[in-house]
Design a protein around this nucleic acid. Structure first.
Lengths: 343, 343
DNA sequence: TTGAAAGCGCTACCAA
DNA sequence: TTGGTAGCGCTTTCAA
């Protein structure tokens, strides 16, 4: 009946004031009971917690973020969500951040630079505590926005080139070189690079470059059969492999830009009656679970995605707490399996 | 030199007031130039936009969300990020929501009910416009919080049971029944269900139940070989298949709880010299890209994930705009391939 | 078409 | 250990 509190409100979400009114303390005290419990008398704290429980109180972090100095949001910008490409990174990152009370806000550019610019702007509008973003090559505006924001920015998956702030990733050109070396060591001589190399997928471009460089160093000639029109998938792999071998039947080694492409390549070779690894060797990139279940099992490169996720989380926390920017090269491993087992 | 505006501030992010001061109009006008451009004189609007561009202005949506009625956040709660299980749903959902200016805030429970409760609370603290969450079976507190919040809640992936508000998913028990029917139609008689069935993965439990029911209806006996200790993966599939066949060599049909488990099952059978599909049939669930590249190619069930993502986005937008709650059964398809091609 | 004033729910700072 | 007072940057009336 009294109008001095909103204790009796029915529909709107309870606020700190609702709790304060109910318990008979100030908003301030309730706030401290939440953020610094030891500064509130035990008995009072008990009552406050009870009231919160009864009212199903959920703090309003929009208000908290606005009033406070940090927002507890970490913006995560990826280029793709398919094929587990980054799923494991996001998974590890999210889980590590959660332990520090940080929430992931996700954006997916689908390799579209305009979308990337738009999304980065959108992410920044939430005043995140930090931003983690795939890649080190971005549209100019993205770099400008991110730099101007002055917040910690961790670029993931790739390293090298112009780092905005910090980076945690692998050396993709080195990966490409290692793939080529592996095939050559196993005695394959006419090598081709096959897959989807999107216009804005500079990681794929770097791997392709590493492949070409290493093959050239060995004095051999290399072939590239790629598309920039669609993302990697088995049907694409099958099509490109067929095109490749129709045009150049001498090819005896295929380096695939991704596991899923390699799956289709293997299928194409099987249908053509080409024996893997005897007639032709195949190596891929990604080490998805299925790669070790192919027939023959697929040689591939395993980037340590979990480690990238974990180190990115570490870097974010460090930067938030005033640590210095860092650039970390994460290990990767070439996993030789049956598909390159010629020797 | 004059102190009436913060036009000359250097470090802090520009605000509406910075723009207003610079152009010489009120904060209000700048705000309207953003949200309702036609209510501002063209020339003024031009100046305002120019100032925003120059200062790299990014609106503060925390403030906007607090002051306004909506927050433009959609909380998305999933149980897993591995194996593309939900990647395609998130991808489609995210992209569809973006068109309406809604941003995805992601949380991953890893099938842990305590984590789920914690994460839902955390998501709600951002005062999202809606919540999309995997599954229809939640810890009691989650249902309570979500209901109490009064906001649109779309449960995804599963349907049936107690729907909080709206649901978009598939009938998992029917899927299980169809898998069993498929094997029996192809002449397989001693069937087993194999895979990871986590304690809180009620979708997997429903599929297993559907399998058991259909086999019982046919008057046959069914075997279950599962674990609740770890998530599905090829090594698990291989191990369970070996255990299964060691104990019961008569088994001639295996229903796998997921594609990745089936990959390992196929590998185990290959090593044991069992011919698929002649000696034994295998069917899975998920239709990951790799399934059609196995040897033999894997029969499986294809849930229409993109459609779930799209319909969830539709439901969210409808509910936000005052539409009624809905429950939608999304289609799925049994894809028969070589691994069950006995006949 | 524009501006002034109030306030969203919280935190920060100071005083008690 | 607690409470009062100012905002955070924006949107939302209402007046001009």
């Amino acid at each position: 009946m009294n109008a001095d509190t909103d204790e009796n409100e029915s529909r709107a979400a309870p606020t700190l004031a609702s709790i304060a009114g109910r318990v008979g303390v100030s908003v301030n005290t309730v706030s401290r009971a939440l953020r610094a419990p030891h500064t509130v008398r035990t008995e009072l704290r008990r009552q406050i917690n009870k009231a919160m429980e009864e009212l199903n109180y959920v703090p309003n972090r929009l208000a908290g973020g606005l009033a406070g100095t940090r927002s507890d949001i970490v913006g995560v910008v990826v280029t793709s969500l398919y094929y587990s490409e980054f799923a494991s990174i996001i998974d590890t990152l999210q889980s590590a951040l959660l332990e520090s009370g940080l929430q992931v806000m996700l954006a997916n550019t689908r390799y579209d630079p305009e979308q990337e610019t738009r999304l980065v702007r959108s992410i920044l509008s939430w005043r995140p505590a930090a931003v983690a973003i795939i890649g080190v090559d971005h549209p100019p505006k993205v770099g400008e926005l991110l730099r101007a924001s002055g917040m910690p920015v961790i670029e993931m998956w790739d390293i090298g080139g112009d780092i905005i702030d910090s980076a945690v990733g692998i050396d993709h050109e080195a990966v490409g070189a290692a793939q080529a070396s592996h095939l050559m060591e196993r005695g394959y001589r006419k090598l081709a690079f096959v897959g989807s190399v999107r216009e804005n997928d500079t990681r794929a471009q770097k791997r392709a470059r590493g492949v070409a460089r290493r093959i050239a160093e060995a004095g051999l000639r290399s072939v590239v059969k790629s598309t920039s029109q669609e993302g990697g998938n088995p049907d694409l792999g099958e099509r490109l492999a067929n095109d490749l071998l129709d045009a150049d039947p001498e090819i005896d080694g295929i380096i695939c830009n991704s596991d899923v492409v390699a799956f289709g390549v293997l299928r194409a070779l099987r249908k053509r009656g080409k024996k893997v690894p005897d007639d032709i060797g195949v190596i891929a990139f990604g080490d998805s679970e299925a790669s070790n279940c192919m027939f023959p099992t697929l040689s591939t490169v395993r980037p340590n995605r979990q480690r990238i996720g974990q180190l990115t989380a570490d870097a974010i926390l460090s930067r938030i707490n005033g640590g210095d920017p860092r650039t970390i090269a994460v290990e990767w491993e070439l996993v030789g399996r049956e598909s390159t087992g010629k020797i």
